[in-house]
Amino acid sequence: MSTQQELYDHLETGLTTIARAWGIVRSDGARFGFTDHDCDLSFEDFQFKASSGVTASLLEQSSGLSVDNSEALGVLSDFGVKEADILAGRFDDAQVTAWMVNWANPDARTVIFRGSIGEIGRSNGAFRAELRGLSEAMNRPLGRVFQKPCTAVLGDTTCRFDTATGGYSHLAAIEETDQKRVFSWNNLSDFEPGWFIGGVLQVKSGAANGLSGNVKRDYVGANGLRVVELWEPIRVPISVGDQVRLVAGCDKRFQTCRLKFNNALNFQGFPDIPGEDWMTSFPSQGGENSGGSLR
Score class of each variant (00 low, 15 high):
V200C: 09
V200Y: 12
V200F: 05
L201I: 08
L201W: 05
Q202G: 06
V203C: 08
V203F: 07
V203N: 05
V203I: 14
K204T: 00
K204R: 13
S205Y: 09
S205W: 09
A207M: 00
A207V: 02
A207C: 10
A208Q: 08
N209S: 12
N209A: 12
G210S: 10
L211T: 13
S212T: 07
S212A: 14
G213E: 00
G213T: 01
G213P: 03
N214Q: 12
N214A: 15
V215E: 13
K216T: 12
K216Q: 15
K216R: 15
D218R: 00
Y219T: 10
Y219G: 05
Y219C: 02
V220L: 14
V220G: 08
V220K: 08
G221Q: 05
G221M: 07
A222W: 12
N223G: 14
N223S: 15
G224E: 05
G224M: 02
L225N: 13
L225I: 07
L225R: 13
V227K: 07
V227F: 06
E229W: 00
E229T: 04
E229L: 08
L230E: 01
W231P: 03
E232K: 12
E232W: 10
E232Y: 08
P233I: 04
I234E: 06
I234P: 09
R235V: 02
R235P: 01
R235L: 09
R235N: 11
V236D: 03
P237D: 14
I238R: 04
S239W: 11
S239Y: 14
S239I: 15
